[in-house]
Design a protein around this nucleic acid. Structure first.
Lengths: 194, 194
DNA sequence: GCGAGCATGTAAGTCGTTACATGATTCT
DNA sequence: AGAATCATGTAACGACTTACATGCTCGC
């Protein structure tokens, strides 16, 4: 049921088609709930059926037509009700960390390569967050922005995303170094007894 | 398919029954993949069926008997193969953050209360992580530990968990303050025009 | 006496992923 | 020529949650 409210919350940023929303709710932009396009299309239909979103068909030339959705008053009310409900702790699911957990028994060079790949992904996301934060602030100081902006929720989440990516980068570098040291000490020894 | 490897990785910490593993893989202890007990029972059965885990029944008095599982050679090989596969970026799913995103339209005091509740949860988890890190190190310095320990994967993940909880606490405090300021500025104004 | 912890599971239902289908346009 | 972007969806499958079932012991 959370997907429903994640989609509604995303519609607060303005009307959107399913496709656009799919990009908005991509890992690189949204750090509160990512969803696949197929999920979003289905949820938008349900939202419309339940009167929480209005839909209108926009005819386009040279590309397929699209359905543009807007959050309704009832949608906002439902979202408001949701904010009062207790939240369960987030789900922690990260394949890379399973590999780190099993690194000592696993293929060390492969795990290290995985950490490095994640590092570049994180760095890319960090850059996106930094740019978004800048474009939200438009020169204002943070306190200024928080005092004057119409909405601050998206900004709060953006900063969380940025801080987490930074933290993540630091950890990835540290963990990579630790596994590299281990590799240097264990693999020459193994090589001597084939 | 990742649950399978998460369970195998948890079995590297030693043999365990489904119930024990359920506690090991709880949010408070494991930060790489949390799973419900029902999921774990089912996965252990499959693991045993596929020869990746050995099972033995342990008769107990005064409490129900239990099935204790051990990872097999084939299980370790499967886990090793898994470490070579590419990892997808983790799933970001946090109900609380949806509420933060919608905070401006939602019930501000409720969102603030939610952040505070999460704060105590994080503080509790942080304490657990700190204690676990201490018990892993047993007085040794970090470099010393990383150089001498038989396995370092669990320690790397533990530090990640600790750092993330710390970061999280800082963000929660900052976001709470921002939403409190907003509440102070908006609710007296509203109260004047009923 | 009652809830919490120990211990394992089934069944039903919801949620989410992957593959497939279609088809024009623009970039490399 | 082939891939990527725009655009929406269906169908099948797999993952995950929630509720239910059972039953004994220990502490309050």
């Amino acid at each position: 049921m959370s997907l429903r409210y994640a989609v509604l919350a995303s519609l607060l940023d303005g009307e959107a088609s399913g496709y656009e929303l799919g990009k908005r709710m991509d890992v690189s932009v949204v750090n509160y709930w990512r969803a696949s396009r197929q999920q979003i299309y289905a949820e938008l239909n349900r939202l419309h059926r339940d009167g929480l979103a209005d839909a209108r068909d926009e005819l386009q030339s040279g590309r397929p037509n699209k359905r543009v959705y807007t959050i309704t008053r009832a949608g906002k009310a439902a979202l408001r009700d949701f904010t009062v409900q207790p939240s369960r702790s987030h789900a922690i699911k990260d394949e890379l960390l399973i590999k780190v957990q099993a690194a000592d028994i696993g293929d060390l060079p492969a795990v290290i390569a995985g950490l490095e790949m994640r590092h570049t992904e994180c760095a890319d996301r960090l850059e996106i967050y930094e740019h978004l934060i800048e474009s939200y602030r438009r020169g204002r100081s943070e306190d200024d922005y928080l005092a004057s902006a119409r909405r601050i929720g998206p900004y709060l989440n953006l900063r969380r995303g940025r801080d987490f990516e930074k933290e993540n980068l630091a950890w990835l570098e540290w963990a990579t170094k630790a596994l590299r040291n281990r590799l240097a000490r264990t693999s020459p020894a193994r090589a001597k007894r084939p």
